[in-house]
């Protein structure tokens, strides 16, 4: 049996673009104004050409081969054995920005006040206390879920969806369900 690897399941079909997940993250951690750990990206009309919108709610993907961990010169990142969560130890960070430049998903952000990088921790403190991550807890549409990607077998789930850059070498621990096509009624 493969090792446990926690990650987010983003159900784009259910997502209503309310930004509650991003707000829940802000409420939990009160990051600086410019710092965002979870971002809700609109899917462009080239991909989803309909009057209604589709959204991608993204944070750190806690990759199986995280580039942030690899490039950090001061070993400020580590990956937890028990669940694969990629943790950034801000005490060790010297603010070189190498992880920010390297992550293709833009997960680590620069905190201009602390002069250090920071990113989504997958709420590992909440996980250890038996709670769900704040964003998952805060989603009113159940569009964001925490799953073990190595065990998750939803037939509709995919690792890469249109609008999400593909970097196979990193193996991001995230799964998506594509948005449904709107019903067109012709007279």
């Amino acid at each position: 049996m493969s090792k446990k690897q926690l990650g987010f399941f983003v159900d784009v079909k259910r997502c209503i673009g309310c930004f509650s997940c991003a707000m829940a993250c802000k409420n939990q951690y009160h990051q600086e104004k410019e710092v965002v750990w979870r971002q809700v990206y609109p899917v462009s009309e080239e991909i989803y050409p309909h009057r209604q919108s589709a959204w991608l709610s993204l944070a750190c993907n806690h990759c199986q081969n995280p580039t942030c961990l690899k490039v950090c010169p001061v070993k400020a990142y580590f990956k937890r054995d028990k669940d694969g969560v990629v943790v950034h130890e801000q005490d060790k960070c010297i603010g070189c920005g190498n992880c920010i430049r390297s992550c293709p998903y833009g997960a680590p952000r620069y905190n201009p006040v602390a002069k250090k990088a920071e990113k989504c921790s997958l709420c590992w403190q909440r996980l250890d206390a038996g709670l769900k991550p704040a964003c998952v807890q805060g989603c009113p549409a159940k569009a964001l879920q925490l799953v073990d990607v190595n065990q998750f077998a939803d037939p509709e789930a995919v690792q890469y969806i249109a609008g999400f850059p593909k970097f196979a070498a990193l193996n991001p621990s995230v799964r998506f369900r594509a948005p449904s096509q709107p019903r067109v009624i012709r007279r």
């Binding site: 462009s44 991909i47 991608l56 993204l58 992550c103 998903y105 833009g106 609008g163 999400f164 850059p165």
Partner: peptide, 11 residues
């Protein structure tokens, strides 16, 4: 251009 600038659009 950083890859994150293209998220949500055609890759």
């Amino acid at each position: 251009v950083h890859s994150a600038a293209t998220i949500g659009g055609l890759q």
